[in-house]
Design a protein around this nucleic acid. Structure first.
Lengths: 199, 199
DNA sequence: GTCTATACTCTGATAGAC
DNA sequence: GTCTATCAGAGTATAGAC
């Protein structure tokens, strides 16, 4: 943690790159049909393999879910961090808006791996569930920091404000259609509702 | 629609009431484990039947999903309508807050059938999906009316405001824990964030 | 390292006795 | 209205050839 949080270049060891194909296929299926409705046969077919071959790369179906989730969090966190690094200016509302725009662009941008925002955590495996929740919480800590920096008249409002922003943003997955407003514009409008009239 | 929107008393024909047990069992399973992860055998066991017996009451698994969904929408809509009927006063923000409180109480109150706000609409059956979406849209029309009545400085803000409110409320299912603040209090705080400083 | 073939369980659903 | 018995197929996972 001294020099850089990510000690690996970009994709450390995608051995013969077939593992990447498996993960991509799983991400696409999980996103489109959900975890429970996706079969290993589906994933294998999309990856151009037979079902049994998957188990060389990942020991079980839920290991695939964890891997997809980890990659998803990694990507959305990178997008947000990159957006914030571009504007070291101090105006807190604008920083929050930029972060939210990056969050929503990644989430709604059509890429798979947007599961960060998993609605439907596996209820049967509590260890797995806890692990995924911890991952998401680690990511969302960024928004806690951003919201705490806001000049609010009532400091106790911060948690509610944060819950509203993230909730509204994540729920956008349900109603958003690619043809509509750009994700960044949605983010701008959301922030605008909370900020009240601008000066 | 002249005298009353609901022409049936409370539960029109729960024939021999075993059908109700089936629906309750299905609702509980769908809520806790999701649709795809629930088997007809699970539902049958919870209802005290054998798997084959379910098909006397419902012709297929997805018919159960539709029935649960319809009952869920009916309940949450009834709760909101009842709350609004109690306060025919005119202050629009208070009406919206009351409706949101009823929405969230029903949603977070622990009852099954709160699937209204279905996370995971079946992606494989687009006819079914469309039907469920239409049901939800019919319910949410109430909030469109409520938001349009608000005294907003920018009238174009109404859709964004509504999307934020419903999104934040529905997403609360993900983080809300029964020990915490009452749902009505959460609703109050959410509205408070949007209204700005009260007079 | 990757694939083939397969084991074994569970799925939604049906037919017909009671 | 519920049960017994069963179907055909899909589910995850494994063993072992290449």
């Amino acid at each position: 943690m001294t020099t850089a949080a990510k000690h690996a270049p970009a994709r450390p060891k995608r051995r013969n790159n077939r593992q990447g194909a498996v993960l991509d296929a799983a991400a696409a299926r999980f996103r489109q049909h959900g975890y429970a409705a996706t079969s290993m046969r589906d994933i294998a077919a999309d990856a151009g393999m037979l079902p049994g071959s998957l188990y060389y790369h990942y020991p079980a179906k839920n290991a695939l879910l964890v891997a997809v989730h980890e990659e998803g969090v990694r990507r959305i966190a990178a997008a947000v961090d990159h957006a914030l690094a571009g504007i070291p200016e101090l105006e807190p509302w604008r920083r929050l808006e930029a972060a939210l725009a990056a969050h929503m662009e990644t989430l709604l941008g059509g890429g798979d791996y947007s599961l960060v925002v998993l609605r439907d955590l596996p209820a049967d495996d509590s260890a797995l569930r806890a692990r995924l929740v911890r991952l998401r919480d680690g990511y969302e800590a960024r928004f806690k920091t951003l919201c705490r920096a806001l000049p609010l008249t009532d400091p106790d409002a911060e948690p509610w404000l944060r819950m509203m922003i993230l909730g509204a943003a994540n729920w956008a997955r349900v109603w958003y259609r690619p043809g509509g407003k750009a994700p960044a514009e949605v983010a701008r409008q959301f922030i605008s509702q909370l900020k009240g009239a601008p000066p």
